[in-house]
Nucleic acid binder design. Structure first.
Length: 502
RNA sequence: GGCCCGUUCGUCUAGGGGUUAGGACGCAUCCCUUUCACGGAUGAAACACGGGUUCGAUUCCCGUACGGGCUACCA
């Protein structure tokens, strides 16, 4: 039997990075076992639906390289894959479950239930309290039916009988046991006719022939209900195997990583940027921050999973062949942005210069810089060892594209004196005429000039660097000079002299 | 409160009845380099606590503490 896995996000906004990891693990498992990975949109909460979220999810998965075989936006024969398009299906199954005696109609309003919760500690709708509520059990089925026909709002609730032990064999956590008497009568079908997650995910997983459910830890407590649903429908023998993933935690402090933490810690917690109604509801993504998708994936894969051994760097294909659920950790993993940055740096270093050039191109365009691909490749090869993010190439390395904006005063104060003016004037002359304009020969000749003039390299070279790029950071001076070109380097010495005498 | 899950360096983790408890990020020092980085080397840094079981527990069991999740007509 080919494994079939699903990623089932809710389109309530941007897809959180934890969701991307869940999608990734599902994808890795499916690929590893030659199975199918599908995307299902769980939009059963009309109140929380956010336009654009669905497209965001699809684009995120594509960017990350986690491409579904079936689902909304990807075709497939088990659709529709959007739950709002499957309303009738849930309706039918909910009523069927009532027929089978595993569910009942309930007429208590949310307000009434809220009042009971206020009045009674630990009040919940379960086998102990349902006799005191208004439902088809207390009313009788005939009356309940006529109430429904009259148009009274109702919900369908799962009827959980006490006295049973429900064992779940979780692939990550082992055997987890629940006492049915402690479970509540979950709402299956809401008054608006939409199913809750519990009904919809069980019905859809069954209909879509899902074999493995890999989802977040927050679903573990309600899995017992899901097992009861599979039983109630008579689907126990094809029930999927469950694996519950540990949560991704805040970098510091307690609790799970939230969208707020992005702004709080100055790091992305979403794959792509998202523009919400307000600035508080808008977020920068890994992509826009200058991450390579491969780096984000590698980082995410290792947040809660490790194949064993000492390796850190894995391509997607390697992740697929190494992946196993047994190696998923049980405890929450803290989101360590420093580590994420390290991965990005590593991946940037491993990319060919022409690929880097094409990644730099849009950033150069945006700033109105030189977009010659050969030149961008030159900048890429000089800067690649000193950047963390793609935009760093045109930010830290701005001086490859425009004149120096500020000169490092500390070095000038330490090294400069008026007597150097004639020597630097000579240098201007030298740079505008030297042939061939090549790094090692330039270096040799300039060092010769320095020596003949009676200086030491340490007296002049730092100043020359400041003249060209303004800072003591950056690639080797003579490599930089060659990239800048003859005219520009001479011009930069002139400008430096002007700056220093003003 | 109730139910469920978890706990190895600061962080991500490997490991597993007998190990100098391994790697990576970060941090520190040094080397390379007339800059910065990259790279290399070295170092500081961990089995939450208490009971069992055992010749021997970080590893198995039970408690405690701490952390987390769930407890909606949200997912």
């Amino acid at each position: 039997m080919t494994p079939r896995l699903r990623f089932a996000p809710s389109p309530t906004g941007a897809l959180h990075i934890g969701g991307v990891r869940t999608a990734l693990y599902n994808y890795l498992f499916a690929r590893k076992h030659n199975g199918v990975f599908l995307l299902r949109i769980e939009d059963t909460d009309q109140g929380r639906y956010v336009p654009g979220a669905e497209d965001y999810i699809i684009e995120s998965l594509k960017w990350a390289g986690i491409v579904p075989d079936e689902g909304v936006g990807f075709g497939g024969n088990e659709g529709p894959y959007r739950q709002s398009d499957r309303k009738e299906i849930y309706h039918k199954f909910a009523h069927e479950l009532v027929e089978r005696g595993h569910a009942y109609y309930a007429f208590d309003t949310p307000d009434e239930l809220e009042q009971r919760r206020q009045a009674e500690d630990n009040f919940t709708c379960n086998h102990l309290t349902r006799g005191t509520l208004t439902n088809s059990l207390t009313l009788g089925m005939d009356d309940a039916r006529s109430w429904i026909e009259e148009g009274r709002p109702y919900v369908v609730r799962l009827k959980v009988e006490p006295g049973r032990e429900i064992k779940i064999n979780d692939l990550v956590r082992g055997e987890v046991t629940f006492q049915s008497g402690e479970l509540d009568d979950k709402v299956l079908l809401k008054a608006d006719g939409m199913p809750t997650y519990h009904l919809a995910n069980v019905v859809d997983d069954h209909l879509m022939r899902i074999t493995h459910v890999i989802r977040g830890e927050e679903w573990l407590p309600s899995t017992a209900h899901h097992v009861l649903l599979y039983e109630g429908f008579g689907w126990s023998d094809t029930m999927p195997v469950f694996s519950h993933l540990p949560l991704i935690l805040k970098p510091v402090g307690s609790g799970k990583l939230s969208k707020r933490d992005g702004a709080k810690f100055g790091m992305p917690v979403f794959p792509l940027s998202w523009k919400g109604e307000t600035s508080e509801d808008s977020f920068e993504g890994f992509r826009e921050a200058g991450f390579l998708p491969e780096a984000m994936i590698n980082f995410l894969a290792l947040l809660g999973w490790h194949p064993g051994g000492d390796r850190e760097l894995f391509t997607l294909d390697e992740l697929i062949s190494e992946f196993s659920i047994e190696h998923i950790g049980k405890s929450g993993a803290r989101f360590d942005f420093e580590k994420a940055k390290w991965f990005n740096q590593k991946y940037i270093q491993s990319l060919p210069t022409d690929v880097l050039a094409s990644l730099i191109l849009p950033h150069a365009e945006k700033k109105g810089y030189n977009t010659d691909m050969a030149y961008l490749g030159q900048v890429a090869s000089l800067m690649r060892e000193r950047v963390t993010f793609i935009p760093d190439f045109v930010e830290a390395g701005y001086y490859f594209f425009e004149p120096v904006k500020s000169y490092d005063q500390e070095t000038i104060a330490k090294k400069w004196n008026e007597n150097l003016i004639p020597f630097f004037n000579n240098l201007t002359e030298f740079f505008s005429n030297f042939e061939p304009f090549e790094a090692s020969q330039l270096e040799e000749q300039v060092k010769g000039l320095i020596q003949t003039a009676g200086y030491k390299p340490g007296d002049i070279l730092p100043l020359l660097r400041i003249a060209f790029v303004g800072t003591m950071k950056g690639p080797a001076v003579f490599d930089t000079v060659v990239a800048l070109g003859r005219e520009e380097s001479a011009a930069r010495i002139r400008r430096f002299l002007e700056h220093i005498s003003s």
